[in-house]
Simulated scan of single mutants.
Amino acid sequence: MIIKQSKYAVSAVKESQYPQDDLPEIALAGRSNVGKSSLINTFLGRKNLARTSSQPGKTQTLNFYLANEAFYLVDVPGYGFAKVSQKKREQFGEMIQDYLETRADLCGLILLIDARHQPTKDDISMYNYALLLNLPILVVCTKMDKLKKNEVQQVQSRLGKYLDLNHDNVTVLTFSSVTKLHLAELGDWIEDKVSE
């Protein structure tokens, strides 16, 4: 997939603020600081379209990025150790739930998990929730460039200990926004889902 143009479209916290043009959407979920913004920027070929932050939990809205005037990538607030109040966290949860459960244009979920660590409780919950919603899921193991050679082979088998990956609608990919590892495969998966 070649990205010819991309732009930030809108930030939303409720349905009335979502784009109304009925283009297909791919949501990206993962814990704070897992590399969602870096993946979006790398995939779209832009340096700072999605703001990367050293302060986890910066994304507090659903951020829609329009690619090729044809589909949206939707950056979902990171879960995990975001320094936000319990009340705010519950609001995030409701906002994400509303979007994932009711959005007719949603045609897949990319779940990002840090390859250096085992999946967190939140990762496992989000994965099982996406399975429940019957969404096509791409599990992306990020930050592969930070692993030693002997650790690379263990990533997928470790993942399989925590997530039941034996589903027709689940794909696993290792990825690095630094080396662009499996960037083409990421594009293929997205293209496949948005053109269905």
Rank of each mutant, 00 (worst) to 15 (best):
R31H: 12
S38I: 04
S53V: 08
S157L: 06
K36F: 10
L106M: 10
Y8G: 05
L112F: 07
A82Y: 01
G78R: 03
L100H: 05
P24H: 04
L159T: 00
K121I: 09
L39F: 03
W189N: 06
R31A: 09
D98F: 07
S125P: 00
N48H: 11
N169C: 00
A82W: 01
A130N: 03
Q156R: 15
S38G: 14
L131Q: 06
L173D: 04
L106V: 01
I26W: 09
S32V: 11
S157Y: 03
L49F: 06
N63P: 05
D145L: 14
L112V: 00
S11M: 09
F92L: 10
E185T: 03
D164Y: 05
V140Q: 12
S176N: 08
L106N: 04
S38L: 10
L39R: 01
L131K: 06
K47D: 13
I26K: 12
Y72R: 10
A12H: 07
V170F: 04
L163S: 07
K14I: 01
Q118N: 15
D188M: 12
D22K: 14
G160W: 05
V76C: 11
K88S: 14
T171F: 08
S125Q: 11
C107H: 10
S54W: 07
A104V: 01
A184I: 09
Y8W: 15
V155T: 07
K58A: 12
K14W: 06
S32P: 08
S177H: 05
L186A: 07
T120H: 13
N169F: 00
K7N: 11
G187Q: 08
E151Q: 15
L49P: 01
Y79P: 03
T142Y: 11
H182T: 01
Y127H: 14
Y18E: 05
K149V: 07
M144G: 01
E101C: 10
L106I: 02
T171C: 07
H117A: 13
R46F: 02
S37F: 04
Q60D: 00
S53Q: 11
M95Y: 05
E185V: 02
H167D: 04
Q55P: 01
G160L: 10
K180L: 12
L28F: 08
R46N: 08
